[in-house]
């Protein structure tokens, strides 16, 4: 029971991070119907910026942890969002209205480019960081086994919840969210009624990249090691999460992320850790067979 509870906590933490990334996939897919293959790399860049920012702050001698955390988070969000904006501007915007596979192939090229860009600039070796936040609550004792909820896990979950709430408000209550929903339904009609479609799509990429940056910061704090290749697998799993939850649906992305995180944690705990990625992808295939529109998605009818 105690072991189960601990895995539940670990899985939820992991799932919160996947969920944050999955929102970026699901929003972009909802609006322009493309898989932003480079989104995993945006997350990786966010993680790198987080570690660099911590290193620079440490170099400047800023020691207050809450202060440093806030600065790092803001810097990572702003700088990563700039990457998201640039990627959209260079690789996707010129291809709008092109044939269907063109943006996806461009995105794959972008993803390869960004990986090698970071590898060339920062080197191929793993970068490590001292843990910034340590300690936690002991929730339960079972013999010698302790169930702990670390402060960091608590922080990751609460930041995710706050961001989710904020995002839902943005989508449902603000002019930007209205414009996004309009573009999702019909871009031409939205443009006719005075919505700047290009700007809305750009902002969607910026928001998605911002969330990926938060995920990158959280994961860097949680694991303490990063390299230039972390974006590939995490991106793939986050996309799986978005599909699982129903692509185009925000709560679905979060739900899918949590489920992928839980599946991975439990599979690694009770079965074979080497095959935990296989388990996550198998879930994707099963979902696509039995419920192609995902858990919370609506089936889309294709019209001529």
């Amino acid at each position: 029971m105690a072991y189960f509870l601990q895995q539940l906590i670990n899985g939820l933490t992991l799932g919160a991070v996947y969920g944050l990334i999955a929102i970026g996939y699901t929003m972009v897919y909802g609006i322009i119907g493309m898989i932003n293959f480079a989104h995993g790399e945006i997350y990786m860049i966010g993680a790198f910026i987080c570690m660099i920012a911590f290193a620079v702050l440490g170099f400047m001698g800023i020691a207050s942890v809450p202060m440093a955390l806030l600065v790092v988070l803001l810097l990572a969000i702003i700088l990563t969002a700039a990457y998201g904006w640039t990627v959209e501007r260079i690789a996707y915007r010129p291809l709008r209205g092109s044939f269907r596979l063109a943006p996806l192939i461009s995105a794959i090229g972008m993803s390869i480019f960004l990986q090698n860009y970071v590898q060339l600039l920062q080197g191929a070796r793993v970068k490590a960081m001292e843990p910034v936040i340590s300690g936690g609550f002991v929730l339960m004792r079972d013999g010698s086994f302790q169930v702990t909820l670390s402060y960091l896990q608590l922080m990751i979950m609460s930041v995710t919840v706050v961001l989710m709430a904020g995002f839902t408000t943005v989508i449902h209550r603000t002019p930007l969210g209205r414009a996004q929903r309009a573009c999702e339904q019909d871009q031409k009609m939205a443009a006719l009624s005075g919505i700047d479609v290009d700007r809305t799509i750009s902002l969607t990429f910026v928001l998605g990249a911002g969330l990926a940056a938060v995920a990158g910061v959280m994961n860097t704090l949680y694991y303490g090691v990063i390299d230039f290749f972390i974006g590939f697998l995490v991106g793939l799993k986050a996309f799986t999460a978005a599909v699982l939850g129903g692509i185009g649906s925000l709560p679905g992305a979060m739900l899918g992320g949590l489920m992928i995180g839980l599946i991975e944690a439990f599979w690694a705990a009770y079965f074979d850790a080497a095959y935990k990625d296989v388990a996550a992808f198998s879930v994707l295939v099963l979902v696509l067979i039995f419920r192609p529109s995902g858990l919370l998605g609506r089936p889309k009818v294709e019209k001529v």
Partner: peptide, 10 residues
């Protein structure tokens, strides 16, 4: 290689 993929698509 990645840059060429993007450039040729564009």
């Amino acid at each position: 290689f990645g840059a060429a993929m993007v450039a040729i698509m564009v």
